[in-house]
Amino acid sequence: MGQSLGIFGYSTNDEDDDEVLRRFTRKWASRLHHTESFPDLKLLPPEISLQILSNVDARELRLCKEFWEELVNDDFLWKRLCYLHWGYCSAYSTPRASQGPHFWKSLFSSLESATERFNTYVTDESYSGISMFQSMSILTDNPYDIAEFLFSTDLLKTSHVLALLQQRRDVLTIYLTKHDFTGWFLPIAMRSFFFKLNLSARHVSPFLAYIFEIFSKHYCDCNPSFTQVAVTIVMLSLVMLSNDLRNPSIKNKMSKREYIKNTLQALDGQANGPIDIDYLGHTYDNVYLIGHVAPEKLDGL
């Protein structure tokens, strides 16, 4: 077997770094166990310290400065935290030669600050909120960059993201394409997207109509055997069915037979692809058993 130089700077006989680290950890744990006072964490090898610090969040990492003043500034740790919370931003492509000292720690602080400011804007000013990321050189105004950024993080307030997408339909269209619905059952795909953005009755009809248009197109792009017109009709039928089944004021609920009959009538003359009686029956069962395809009634349609 060949020999290689591991993270501890000596031959490991092809032993992976994790195993070397485990051996060192056990050795130091045994040594610390026999100390009479609380161990001085500064005595730990830097490799073990980095391994420990790579498992803490930003708040805890900052608190560790007392024990690992130099290591807590290590860009390896802050880069990991950046990607963990914001999977993408334009600043990640900054050339290494232009990054400067503590680039990733500084970028994390900027992302943290801009995110907080975005989330504190009132809903109709969210487009101004995204400009915070741009003014801090975190994002460009490229719609592909903005869409990728929005898709890559769960830290942004949903209502503010939705308000931004209403104002930037170029971003919305690209954002939707980030969802891969290949092979997804239509009610499940709708539920996934609508709940993620919390699309509900408070949003105006033109926007919802646009959502249905681009969603049906993207769904057909992912599933070419379907046609856009047929998918749009079934989407509308599913919304009406959801409202009917979940509205307590409606006493006579729509039966599966009625739902299938009404949808087939709406589809009359259209190229339906896989959408037939059995398919529609399964969509009815899905809504009946699982629930609404959107967070609330989509009355504005």
Rank of each mutant, 00 (worst) to 15 (best):
P187I: 04
M190I: 12
D154N: 15
P187A: 06
L162E: 00
L139S: 01
S192D: 11
F151R: 09
Y144L: 10
S135A: 13
P187Y: 05
L150F: 03
I188K: 13
G183K: 14
Q134L: 12
S152I: 01
P187M: 05
L156I: 01
I188T: 13
H160C: 09
P143T: 02
S159R: 08
Y144E: 15
S152A: 07
T177H: 12
D180L: 10
L139V: 03
A163R: 04
T182H: 10
H160G: 06
K178D: 10
V171T: 03
T177A: 13
L172Y: 09
A189K: 05
V171K: 02
M132G: 14
L150W: 00
E148D: 11
S152V: 03
M132Q: 15
L162I: 07
L165E: 01
I146C: 01
F151P: 03
P143K: 03
D180T: 10
L165P: 00
W184I: 10
S152M: 05
E148G: 08
I146D: 00
Y175P: 02
H160D: 07
H179K: 14
D154C: 12
L172Q: 09
I146S: 00
A163S: 10
R191G: 03
S192K: 15
D170M: 08
F149E: 00
L172N: 07
H160T: 02
G183A: 07
D170Y: 06
V171N: 02
Q134N: 14
E148Q: 10
F185E: 12
A147R: 02
I188G: 14
D154K: 12
A163D: 00
G183Y: 07
L165A: 06
K157D: 06
M136A: 12
L150S: 00
Y175H: 13
D141M: 11
